[in-house]
Nucleic acid binder design. Structure first.
Lengths: 200, 200
DNA sequence: GCTATCGGATACATTCACGTATCGGATACG
DNA sequence: CGTATCCGATACGTGAATGTATCCGATAGC
């Protein structure tokens, strides 16, 4: 019997995302999640056994969605012309719900740094995402008539771009008015990308 | 009467740092901190009123120490000659207890993103730290016979360097073997710094 | 449509962390 | 020294979040 079940789980996960983003993992009670989802704690314990399990389930769903969306974007871009500036501009754009994800994934990252099992899980997902990013960035550079300078591999470059994105977001969310998301990317990525690539 | 008092507070703060780094803010009980420090909860409530207060006290102490250390480094460097590579190398170095600080400050940042009051506090501290960094970087660049290219201000550049540092650390701590701390800095900072500065 | 099973609600007991109030020992001061 | 005050320990009460056990309604198979 499984008609309601997936829906219930999905709603609980949606609610958990909201709750964790609003109050953090430690700061949300199981009942918070249930209230947001429109259930009681009975429903929760019928579907999950601990708050941690819910957290991990949320991460897995989120990871799958991010990857899926990313693959679609990569596929959709096709053969369009690009420049270094265009690549930088694309990296300076942010979804509306980026903030919510940022809060939850960063907290997950923290737990992963403390817990080897979670770290493996996170590393695996990140590797898949990076592979897509490497593919996408490689295509874009090729279309722009560029290739990495000697000593620069795309994998590292992607890691660098991710680091910049995450680090810049942290500052932007602490001081949204002083540093709107994308500011640092727009200002520095063209120079950085130009410096690590060459014609060819 | 104040002989034991500062010592007790210091020990509680040390213990809190350990505990928060190990289990996160939400995940540590006040008693955890007291046990690590070798006291009972009575000592805690005699010195602090809430766990949040302890957290802020810890943060303030850390901020003061970092600033102090930073100023010393700036003073010690004096007029020595530098290159872009030397600056990059300096930014690629990490304390042993950097990891502990990273865990605690990142969690604090998350709470600050959620709470405007904490965000102001954090922004204030960060601004002081950035001001020192701007001064130091300006001196180093001058000694290297460089100045920022038009359109690049040092303040933004420092923000960028901090973003890179934090973002890279996150990846390094999740996969220490795949990406030891400093890897990305060594690989990309020379190019980045070279691209955003010019002789003068 | 009847029934067996499943999913979620309700009610309860328990655990756990918290905060306070009080006590005993140590320290600075006269 | 003696004493007043401060500091940390101990013991207790409280509230909140948790987990479980049971119940009721809904759903799928016959």
């Amino acid at each position: 019997m499984t008609k309601r079940r997936p829906q219930t789980q999905a709603r609980l996960l949606d609610a958990a995302l909201e709750a964790f983003a609003a109050n953090g993992f430690g700061g949300t009670r199981i009942e918070d999640v249930c209230e947001r989802a429109g259930y009681t704690r009975g429903a929760f314990y019928s579907n999950f056994s601990t708050k941690e399990e819910l957290f991990f389930a949320l991460f897995d769903r989120h990871a799958a969605r991010v990857l899926e969306r990313f693959e679609k974007q990569a596929a959709a871009l096709g053969d369009s012309r690009v420049t270094v500036e265009a690549i930088a501009a694309a990296l300076a754009e942010f979804d509306d719900d980026e903030r919510t994800w940022y809060l939850v994934t960063t907290e997950f990252t923290l737990s992963a740094i403390r817990d080897p099992a979670a770290a493996r899980r996170l590393a695996e997902h990140d590797a898949r995402l990076r592979a897509e990013a490497v593919r996408l960035l490689g295509e874009r550079l090729e279309h722009a008539g560029l290739r990495p300078r000697p000593g620069i591999d795309l994998e590292s470059l992607v890691r660098m771009l991710i680091a910049i994105r995450e680090g810049a977001l942290a500052q932007s969310y602490v001081e949204p008015e002083a540093l709107p998301p994308g500011t640092l990317e727009r200002r520095f990525l063209p120079a950085l990308l130009g410096a690590v690539t060459q014609a060819g």
